[in-house]
Structure formats: structure tokens, C-alpha cells
Nucleic acid binder design. Structure first.
Lengths: 241, 241
DNA sequence: CGACGGATTGAAGCACCTCAACGGGAGTGG
DNA sequence: CCACTCCCGTTGAGGTGCTTCAATCCGTCG
């Protein structure tokens, strides 16, 4: 019954629809479009694939395209002149890349793992959005959500300790990569360097803090890029300071 | 001629219009509405005044209203359980308060200096926006801009040194409080504590760094809450690392 | 005048960084 | 199959930039 309700809330599409079978349709902005409009939309957005490490857009590039991530993981980052790097966020499947009214991308987007995207020419995308208020609405909701997330990250970077940052990060992973479930195994493809650049820490500190959480039996490491939450309560307590 | 062009780009309003003489109309989202729509809009948004230190909205409050700041200065902040505070941003005249699709405000908004706002019931505001695509567009632009600013602040908090943070902050003040002009005096009403909580530093560090910039002849302190940029080039160099 | 709050200055401590060595899994080549 | 290398992650020891604690200064207000 619950599942039926979920499905019911989505516009139905046909088996021959180009978006039929898309795993992230309901998550992505596409989810706000009904079948015919979605078909027209998708006609402008062919797939584009990137291997881990490849760059999707460079900071400073003209923002000629916008994207929807269908699978994989991207990082949004910025480099200071001397090489210091800050990752402003990760994009998960269903996330939208290209929230801006500026001419240029403000951040570099790179594939952390091999990723697939739907790529839309910005011009056509804008025109299409102008004709579809429901899409405009959805875009605003996405922007508002991203803004809240970025501001939450400001609290982490400005005021939390290394331990609190790592705990917050692991909980974020748990909520984004998974459908809850307390003791499930959580995979994350990003390196310790990526984690450090996201949390404003050095890789050595990331490593030490993760080890400490493992030693304290808050988490269990099931691999270098996967873990299990053992004591969610204590982890949440830690994360909030 | 230049002025005429600027005025021309704005929808004209009449002398008896409730928004006639509003100093921030062109800056605020209101700037996207033509006279009649703006009149209808303003009918739902009476003025509300707050003294320095008063709270406009509390984190966790139901988001029953949205606001446009017409004068003064607000801070958006969040408190950790043990009292640590992070300021996510400042709102200047013309800025919009209430970018969210959530039911509750994620941040507390307080007046740094005595401030005036136009207050709109959220429900009516949403309805009005739904009827005015140009306003929806403008809201999206505002959200995208705020998102870019927040992400830029992530770089500052995650990777910049205390000196670089202060330099960046002073330049931000210069660009937001003023119409450029190199050696103008810049006033800022926020306390050292506010600055520290915005930059992820303690007030002692803020004080020391400001003193250092003064000693190094990069800036000149003209009062406890005002300064002048002496060497903008070096200040910008510092700010970028 | 004294008291108060915000800002500055000084001295000592510590959380995280830096530098350096080591470990372990994946790929390669014999 | 083992030997080798490379890359990434872990661990250790020492350094440092910012914090913490504390005293002083200064403008405002009663």
C-alpha cells in the first residue's frame, strides 16, 4: 500500500519512453514533469559518461550546459592559488548540476566515481523552464535545499571539532547513500583526501578520527571505502557537539 | 544619461504608490514587479521594525512569514548545544529572508542594528509567487546567488587562514556596504563577536588580525565600527591566499 | 566618579598540521 | 606463483596557529 502510494504520486510514463527505467527520475527535477513534457525535455538531454577523476565542468568555464546526475558521484570544488582545495559538496544520483544565473561556473565538478549524466544545453534548458512553471518551482526547491545544506556545512566548518566533523560526515553518508536502516553497510567512493577537503581537515586527521570512532565501537570499518554504524545514538550525539 | 537608463530599466510607479520612495525596491525581489502587481504585493506586506539585538525569526519556528529587509542589518545564525555559534551570513537592505521550502526556519535571524522589514504571510506570498512567474524567476536568481555566496564562504572557513579570512571579510564589507570607491569610509555595525562567529574565529583573533592589517598600513581604522581601505591590491592578494 | 560592556593585548595551552616512516592491497612482469 | 612497484591509507613525533585564560583599556552611562 505504501509503495502504491509512492508510485501513484509520480506521473506515469510509457514503456517506450526515453526515461522509462531511469532510476532517479523521481529524485531529479525531471520528476516534476508529466510524460509528454518529459519526453520533450529528454530530447535535449543526451547521456554523458565520465570516468573517476574526469572533470565535468571547470571553474570559470562558460556555463553552456546543465546536468542531472543519473549515477555515480561528483564533487564540487574550488582551488586556492597555492593549491589548497575546498570541496563545497558532493552530488549524488538525482542531483542537479548548474544552479546559477551567472555566465560562468563558480566551481569545478569532477567525477569521484564513474558517473552518468543527462546533459542539457543551458539556453534550451532555460527556455524549457520558462515554459514549465512546475519545473521552475522544482528548481527553486532544489536551490533552497542546497542553500540550507551549504549553510549547515558552514556551521560544521566554522565551529565543529575534527571528531564532530567526521561524525557528521558519516551520518550524512548514511542518510544520502541509503534508505536508513541502522546497521546496513555504507559504501563511499571518495578518498580520504576528498573527505579532508570537504571537512576542512588534513588526510592524516581524517584517518586518525575514523580510527578513533572505530576503536570506540561507534562504527565498524568493513573496508577502506565502506563502514557500518554500530552506535547511531552516540554518533549523533558526537556530531551535534 | 546613465541615470536615465537605470531608471528606465525599472518599472515606473506613481507618487501615491505604497512603495514610492522605497530605497531598496530595485534591489529587492519587488524590483521584478510592475506597478499594479507591486501594489497588490505590498498590500500583504506591512512594515515591521526591530531594534538591535531583537530576533526576527527563531531557528525551528514555523516559517509563517517571509521578509524583505528595507533598512538595517540582520545576521543568520545557528547555535550548537554548548553555545558555540556560527553566523551563516548577513542580510543587507534589499535582501530576502525566507528562502526555504521547509516548514521551519533553519536559522535564527536577528537584527544587528535597528532594522525595518516588509513582512509577508508565507501562504499569501506563495500564492502570489505562483501567479507571477517573473517573481518566481527572481526568487530563483536570489537563491542561486545566495548558494554561490554560501559555497564561497565554505572555502573561507575550510581553507583560509585567520589573516585571509579578515581580509576577505573587509573586502566583502567594502563591496556590499558601498558603491566601490577606493578610499571611502566603510561602516559596519556588527561587533567583533559577530565577525568572529561569521569567520569561525575567536574575538581575540579578530582583534589581533585587524590590528595587524592596520599596523601593516593595509587599512586604516576610523572608529571601532568603521575603516578605510588603504591598499586594496595587497588586501585582495591577502584575501585570495 | 565608578561601573559596565566591548575591544585590545599578553602569555600559555592545545587541537590540528607537518613531516616522515610504514603498511597493505592492486596491478605488472617475469 | 612470487617479486616489485605504486598508490593510498595509517601511524608516530614534533611544530604551530589559533584558542584559552587573564589583565588592561576605553567609551558610555548612571
Amino acid at each position: 500500500m505504501l509503495m502504491a502510494a509512492t508510485v501513484q504520486s509520480l506521473p506515469m510514463i510509457e514503456q517506450d519512453h526515453p526515461c522509462f527505467g531511469c532510476a532517479v527520475r523521481e529524485l531529479a527535477i525531471c520528476g516534476s514533469l508529466e510524460s509528454a513534457a518529459l519526453r520533450e525535455f529528454k530530447a535535449n538531454g543526451p547521456a554523458a559518461d565520465y570516468e573517476a577523476g574526469e572533470t565535468v565542468v571547470y571553474e570559470g568555464d562558460r556555463a553552456a550546459n546543465v546536468y542531472t546526475l543519473t549515477s555515480g558521484l561528483l564533487r564540487l570544488s574550488k582551488l586556492l592559488p597555492d593549491g589548497r582545495r575546498q570541496i563545497a559538496g558532493f552530488l549524488f544520483p538525482g542531483d542537479f548540476l548548474g544552479i546559477t544565473m551567472e555566465e560562468e561556473h563558480a566551481f569545478t565538478a569532477e567525477a569521484v566515481a564513474s558517473s552518468s549524466l543527462c546533459r542539457f544545453p543551458r539556453r534550451q534548458f532555460d527556455d524549457f523552464v520558462a515554459d514549465h512553471p512546475e519545473l521552475e518551482r522544482r528548481l527553486y526547491a532544489v536551490a533552497a535545499h542546497e542553500l540550507a545544506a551549504a549553510r549547515q556545512q558552514l556551521v560544521l566548518l566554522g565551529r565543529k571539532t575534527a571528531t564532530e566533523r567526521i561524525a557528521s560526515f558519516l551520518l550524512m553518508l548514511a542518510s544520502r547513500c541509503h534508505s536508513m536502516g541502522s546497521s546496513e553497510e555504507i559504501d563511499f567512493p571518495m578518498s580520504r583526501a576528498d573527505i579532508g577537503d570537504y571537512l576542512g581537515l588534513r588526510i592524516e586527521t581524517v584517518s586518525r578520527e575514523i580510527t578513533a570512532l572505530k576503536t570506540g565501537r561507534l562504527i565498524q570499518l568493513t573496508g577502506r571505502h565502506s563502514f557500518r554504524i554500530v552506535d547511531r545514538d552516540r554518533l549523533e550525539q558526537l556530531a551535534e557537539g
